[in-house]
Design a protein around this nucleic acid. Structure first.
Lengths: 187, 187
DNA sequence: AATTTAATTCGATGAATATCGAAATGGATG
DNA sequence: CATCCATTTCGATATTCATCGAATTAAATT
């Protein structure tokens, strides 16, 4: 019946000492705003604000009773949410819109000159591999290249084509046939 | 083996969109600060800050690897904490230092004059009962009082001693013997 | 040892928010 | 229907905190 409450909203709702106390109190019995305010030494308006944040994520609900609106904890919602907090679906949702390839792009960008050539080859393994994954895209999948053609392409990136060739094959980004001249882009 | 991290600290650690994303990413594989910074489009110093807050509550830990310090999620800590979050012990701890009787005291205070007498008798049931719980303490447990003695005591609080007497008995705060004259404080 | 590189710490800044008081709302009561 | 009372809403304020840049630390490679 309701929208999908962002996981972070749920945590924010509980990331306050007084709101946690409210949950703890309501776990024992229902209370009116006025009572909670007295117990927590806060003004009613403040407690009302806290309760509305807890209600936002479905943790508490109010029932009118005489003059008062009596709040109670939704025990089942609490348990249901708790159980699913770190499920793989939740985790997947959280990282849903993150840009996994941003690191590779940043590395390539850091090492590239405006004309697309590389200032140097990264010394760090991890960064070198990021650059190699970028370079290999300059080759067509399913095409066979002679060593000369490979060097031709690689020279656009860096003069040390021999190192690039060796690393590309070493990382299995490219394959090589026999002792000799045939290369291709893997996968 | 470690200190008790306040529950609120745990929630605060997760009450941030970027920290949640970090947890989600580390649930898949370890990452260095630099990589997380690139993926989340944040500066390394910011990511370092987030990681230290997560480490504070034991959710992540770092391992040195070459130049990098590679962070990983402590899956077992995550599950352990999640399981115990809303246990009754946790809830008890949260409300450990709250003043449960503050509401009664506030009501009594609101209705009391400096000399200890009551301005009026509360019309609201809930508040009247708070006042009655206060008044009944003026009687000794285990002692028998005549109606005259009861009125004597009650008159210090309010002139309408008849109503007070009736309500005290009605709420079972005091007991009465037979049709006549004996009263005592209950429990 | 000197240099490079990543991580951390520190100080500052801007945004989010807990809290309050005052005013508005909305039921219940007489 | 007028009043009362608890609650809620609103505007303002003060605090907390996420973020950044600069400076420092730590570690590893040359």
């Amino acid at each position: 019946m309701s929208e999908a409450p962002e996981l972070v909203t749920f945590f924010k709702a509980l990331a306050d000492a007084n709101r946690l106390k409210i949950v703890g109190l309501l776990a024992r019995q229902p209370y009116s705003v006025e009572e909670l305010a007295a117990i927590l030494d806060l003004k009613p308006s403040t407690v009302s604000h806290h309760l509305s944040r807890l209600a936002e994520v479905g943790l508490v609900s109010a029932r009118a009773e005489g003059y008062y609106s009596v709040y109670m904890l939704d025990q089942s919602a609490l348990e249901a949410t708790t159980r699913g907090i770190f499920s793989s679906e939740q985790m997947a949702t959280v990282v849903e819109n993150v840009d996994m390839d941003a690191y590779d792009r940043k590395v390539v960008d850091d090492y590239s000159r405006p004309d697309g050539s590389l200032k140097t080859l990264p010394a760090q393994r991890k960064k070198l591999e990021a650059v190699l994954r970028y370079i290999v895209e300059a080759f067509e999948p399913g095409t066979r290249y002679s060593e000369k053609q490979v060097n031709e392409v690689l020279s656009r990136f860096h003069e040390d084509t021999a190192s690039l060739r060796r690393e590309l094959v070493g990382c299995k980004l490219m394959g090589r046939e026999g002792g000799g001249g045939e290369y291709w882009r893997n996968e």
